[in-house]
């Protein structure tokens, strides 16, 4: 059956996750509202949204932990939760933080969870556990009780659990939570290397910089709804770019920019000079706006001593805030 399950059928399908009208209601409250999620095979998919926007509830429904109030879920081309027995062994998951038996050691915990996997061969269990621990850098703490683990170590152990068997899909809910910068970096590298092997990775996060660095696709949730979804460049493109000039001659710079038809605005001063910024609506010749290199030429010709010049594309964070609202009082 593994041959059939991993075979061409699901490959041809092309979509690793597909939901249609996925909805979850808790009483009156609609936690997830008519979600149409499309995760192509091989993508590193960032699942974004503020806290309480329904990300984890969605993940629970994807994995069959919670039943959908309406709508359907397909993982690896198969129905969930109906075909969970064929689907889930090929899916590694980290759901809402790691959870382990504190009185067992790290490696005992993994043995336990592997024993719960019906298709995992007991013969190779020890080797696979050791390998997974090594992959997340926990070999030295394998015999230690999880009780004594730091949050970051538990997080790594959670990721090790997701890597116990070869997986076609990894669902990682906030994988860098509690990790120090080194750990975060390692997780990033791990995700990249897994993606390079062809594993589809579905990462939920509210750390946008994180997502920006590793993801090929993203979706943004807000108040239970999907407000944007697609390849990362497409998501960013819909935003605008702006230039940022660092110079000791703030005033002249602003007037040069104004002459070019831009709307300069002063920004907080930096140690190496004043900063002038201006929105650059649509880069390129067709817009009639000057190209960045021409702007620099004009500035220099106008006697402005340019110490720094940057074209800033709108960051994912700006886009995210534009989509989900600013501050703590986001829509609930």
């Amino acid at each position: 059956m593994t041959a059939a399950a991993g075979g061409p059928e699901s490959r041809m399908y092309g979509l690793t996750i597909e939901t249609k009208g996925l909805t979850k209601r808790f009483g009156q409250q609609v936690a997830v509202n008519a979600l149409d999620l499309v995760v192509p095979q091989g993508a590193v998919f960032g699942f974004l949204g503020p806290n309480g926007s329904g990300k984890t509830t969605t993940i629970r429904m994807l994995l069959g932990l919670a039943a959908a109030s309406a709508g359907t879920v397909k993982l690896l081309g198969m129905e969930m939760p109906g075909q969970f027995r064929e689907v889930l062994p090929r899916v590694g998951a980290l759901v809402e933080g790691p959870a382990f038996y504190p009185f067992l050691s790290g490696s005992e915990n993994l043995h336990r969870l592997d024993a719960a996997t019906r298709h995992a061969a007991p013969g190779t269990r020890k080797a696979r556990v050791d390998q997974a621990l090594e992959r997340v850098g926990l070999s030295h703490a394998a015999g230690k009780r999880v009780h004594a683990y730091s949050l970051g170590m538990k997080q790594r152990l959670g990721i090790a659990n997701a890597l116990l068997s070869p997986r076609e899909l990894l669902v990682l809910d906030e994988p860098t939570n509690g990790l120090d910068p080194q750990g975060t970096r390692e997780v990033r590298n791990l995700v990249r290397s897994l993606a390079a092997d062809g594993t589809t990775v579905f990462v939920s996060s509210h750390l946008l910089a994180e997502v920006e660095q590793i993801c090929t696709h993203a979706a943004v949730m807000s108040a239970g709804r999907l407000v944007a979804q697609g390849p990362l460049p497409d998501l960013r493109r819909s935003g605008s770019a702006r230039i940022r000039v660092v110079t000791p001659d703030g005033g002249p710079a602003a007037s040069v920019l104004a002459r070019l038809g831009l709307a300069p605005e002063p920004a907080p001063e930096q140690p190496d000079g004043q900063v002038v910024m201006a929105a650059l609506a649509g880069l390129g010749a067709d817009t009639g706006r000057p190209a960045p290199e021409d702007i620099v030429a004009h500035l220099v010709a106008g006697g402005v001593r340019v110490r720094g010049f940057v074209v800033e594309r709108e960051s994912l964070e700006d886009r995210f805030v534009a989509l989900t609202g600013e501050g703590f009082d986001v829509v609930q």
């Binding site: 629970r60 932990l65 759901v95 959870a99 038996y101 969870l113 719960a116 996997t117």
Partner: peptide
Amino acid sequence: LGTLRYLLVAPT
């Protein structure tokens, strides 16, 4: 402990 969700997605 939260291990229930991991046992179920193992899957058990």
